[in-house]
Every structure is written in C-alpha cells, then in structure tokens.
Design a protein around this nucleic acid. Structure first.
Length: 423
DNA sequence: TCTGGGGTCCTAGGACCC
DNA sequence: TCTGGGGTCCTAGGACCC
C-alpha cells in the first residue's frame, strides 16, 4: 500500500505554527515580490480567494475581512519541511520526498504494528502534528495515483479526519465515480479539454477506457495513469532522489528596469546561485542559458524577450566562470530601451563532477578553482550568505524583490528564535 | 519492377507537477 | 502601478554513424 502524506495549506500552516494568534483567521502567503497568492488557510479559501489571485485584487480584504498576508519565507518552509520528513522517517522505512509539502510512503508491513492501516496512518498524522505543528492529510491506496485520489477525498471532507484508505475494489470504484478528471495526478488543463470533448467525464469513466484509446490521446504517460487507476502500480517509490538534470534561478525585479548594470548585477547573482547549487549536488554543467523578458501583462510597454544558450568549453561549477559566461550571453541578447521584468539563468547538460573530462593543458586550474570554491562555501556557511562574493554580484541590489510582509526565520536564525514567557 | 537495417544524439515543443 | 519560481518526462524530426 502506498500512502501520500500532504501538508494542509503548507505555507499558511508554517506561518501559523509559530503564531497561534493566527488560528481561525484568514491568512494567505504571497509569491515573490508579493505578487500573487500561492497559499491560503481554509478561512481564506472560504472568502473565495483563488490560487494565483494577484495581491492587489485583494488589498482591501485586510480591512474588510481581517485577511492577513505574508511574503513567502522559503527558509522557514524548507526547514519545517525537513522536520516533517524527519517525523515520517521515524515511522516508515521507505519513503519518497515528492515536494516541499508532500511525501509518498510505503505502508506495507503496518500489520506488525497495528491491525489496521488507517490506524497506522493516524499515528503518523498525530506525530507530525505533535512534532511540527503542521496538520497533514493522508491518502492510502494500492497505487500512487489512487493514493492521491484518496488524499483529495480526505482534504475535501473534514469529517474523515484527514485520512482516507482505499483498499477494496468497491471502495476504489466509489471514489473514482464522479471524481473530476482534472483533479487526477497527471491530467492538466489541456488533457481535461481533450478528454471532456471526447465525452470522458469522470475518473471512473476514464479508468474503463481501452489502452490504445488512451495512448493515442495522452501517450505512454496516459497508459500508466490508466493502469494505476485500475489498481496496477506502475509508478514506483523513488527512494534515492535523482541528481538534477537542470538548475534554474530566475526572479522578477522588485521594480522593472531598463538599466543594463542592474540587470547584469541580478544575473550575476543568479549565475552564482546556480554554481552554488551545482556544487551542492556534486555536478558540473556543460550548458548555460540566459533569458530576459519584459512584462507580458503590460498592454502599453514595448515587449521583448530573448534566450541565449552557450555551450561551455569545459563543464564547470566555478562561480566566476559561470558569471562570466552568463554576462557574455546577456550581451548577445541585450537591447536598450525595454523595461525588463525578469532575468534568469539555467544550467543544463549536468553531469557528476567525478566524471569530468580533464583538460590537456589547463587542467591544473580545476584543483585551484575547486579549492577556492570550497573556501568560499565554507566561509559563507559560517558567516552568512554572500559574505564573500564576486564583485560583479554588486552590493546595491537595486533589483531585489519586494518582501514587505516577511515573517521571522523562527527556526534557522538565532535572533529570530521565539521567546517563551512563563507566568 | 527493383533501392538495407539498425542505431545514437540533439533540439524544440508540448504536456505535466508542486 | 500591481499577475511566482523551479522542475520533469515524452515525442517527433533532423543529422549523423556503421
């Protein structure tokens, strides 16, 4: 049996866990630059606030509805996520961290502890709540896809206590009957349109289609989905996370800009971040892509966006090289006179650093570079991010994002630790 | 009339996920 | 005025190899 453990309204719940005053109140967490809503408490959902709603559209809700908004605090959410995983790992042997707020678990063998898999799921749920303050929903079923279906039911119906087990064929059938195909794992908007146009209305109906029919519309991934809905597990638990195949760092500017210096400085920082993430993965990149874009929502500004990929002479994760190449790529696509909204850097063609192709004449550089990067990462690890950096990364940060409602880093910064008063 | 068989690598585009 | 960021997988087509 597969279980999927999904944190309820995760970012909103993280904010709440450290600020009990927020209990029962409508809260939302905003995207970078405080742009749009990316998480909502149940109370905020009840106000009709949709995922992705632009922040300015709900600006008056603070006054009229008592809505409280937060800038996103990924340092906090990342740390809480790790704690949730630690709680899970203390209770199951095999698990797969699927996203920042979801974890698949293998629940086979629960019989040794409890008579009933529901009860075991309940124990996991309680422990996570007690250890982290985060409420979770758990769906259990014979396949990952069905576990997702079960989880959705658990979330939809508060009376179920946040846990749904789909074990017998009749239970699965009942769950799929009337289940919107758009809510299935692996079916997005395009497929919903296609399938509905062909008369496929709910998940039960889809699960009864012929394999060839599904393959024609949704290729082989659709066939896997079909099998999973029928109870044949096709998507295994991935216990060891794969090495990343690409790493991307890109952000919108707090204030749109036509200034090349500002854009270059931002890009240098994103390239440096890519290099740092590469080193953390133990990988090197063979290609680097830079893209810039204006604000495509604007009806009045002139629009321009461009992408440039550079194949590197030698695969690397050396920050100065990365920045140098990124700025070179930017130079090839830069155009004056446009108000840019976003710049970004993607490194791809990644390979493990240990399989690096040595250079015939200049290979001595590699060891020097790695030593320098090790020193850089160590110093910054001790004294804080970017304490030591490349000059091109600048210090003005004119391009920084807007985060007006940022909560403290309760668990990762000494001065942000909560003080508890005892009476 | 008839013109082999079996592969790899790369890229762009489309779909999806959280 | 104001609309996020970071990923994965699959397919088709072109270019190339022996």
């Amino acid at each position: 049996m597969f279980g999927i453990i999904d944190c309820n309204n995760f970012y909103a719940s993280c904010e709440r866990a450290f600020n009990p005053n927020l209990e029962g109140k409508p809260i939302v967490v905003l995207s970078n630059n405080d742009g749009c809503v990316i998480a909502r408490s149940n109370e905020a959902k009840a106000l009709g606030i949709e995922m992705g709603t632009p922040a300015f559209q709900i600006a008056t809700y603070a006054q009229s509805q008592g809505l409280i908004a937060f800038s996103s605090n990924y340092t906090l959410y990342g740390d809480i996520s790790e704690r949730v995983v630690a709680a899970i790992a203390s209770m199951v042997e095999r698990y797969e961290v699927y996203s920042i707020d979801e974890c698949f678990v293998d629940l086979s063998g629960y019989e040794k502890i409890t008579a009933d898999v529901y009860e075991y799921a309940w124990m996991i749920q309680q422990r996570i709540r007690r250890w982290t303050g985060i409420p979770v929903s758990i769906g259990v079923a014979p396949t990952k896809t069905l576990a997702k279906v079960a989880n959705r039911r658990a979330k939809k119906n508060p009376l179920l206590g946040g846990i749904v087990v789909l074990k017998h064929e009749s239970e699965i059938r009942r769950a799929l009957d009337g289940f919107d195909i758009g809510d299935l794992w692996g079916i997005g908007r395009k497929y919903v349109n296609k399938l509905k146009a062909l008369g496929c209305e709910d998940a039960l109906h889809l699960s009864q289609q012929r394999e060839e029919w599904v393959r024609k519309i949704m290729t082989v991934q659709g066939v896997r989905l079909l099998k999973e809905l029928q109870g044949f597990s096709c998507i295994e638990l991935e216990l060891v996370p794969d090495r990343k195949k690409a790493i991307c760092c890109a952000k919108s500017f707090g204030e749109y800009t036509d200034n090349r210096e500002t854009v270059s400085e931002a890009l240098a920082n994103y390239a440096a971040t890519c290099a740092k993430k590469l080193r953390k993965e133990g990988s090197i990149a063979n290609m680097l892509t830079v893209f810039i874009t204006t604000n495509y929502y604007s009806l009045v500004d002139a629009q321009y966006s461009a992408t440039k990929t550079i194949h590197l002479d030698k695969a690397t994760n050396y920050t100065p090289d990365m920045i140098h190449q990124a700025l070179k790529a930017l130079g090839l696509i830069w155009k004056d006179g446009f108000k840019f909204k976003k710049v970004g850097c993607i490194v791809s063609g990644l390979q493990p650093e240990e399989f690096r192709q040595a250079q015939l004449f200049t290979d001595i550089d590699w060891e020097k570079e790695q030593a320098a990067m090790k020193a850089l990462d160590t110093v910054n690890g001790w004294y804080g991010r970017d304490k030591v950096k490349v000059a091109a990364q600048g210090y003005k940060r004119d391009w920084k994002m807007i985060q007006e409602r940022l909560s403290p880093c309760y668990t990762t910064r000494w001065k942000d630790l909560l003080t508890v008063k005892c009476k």
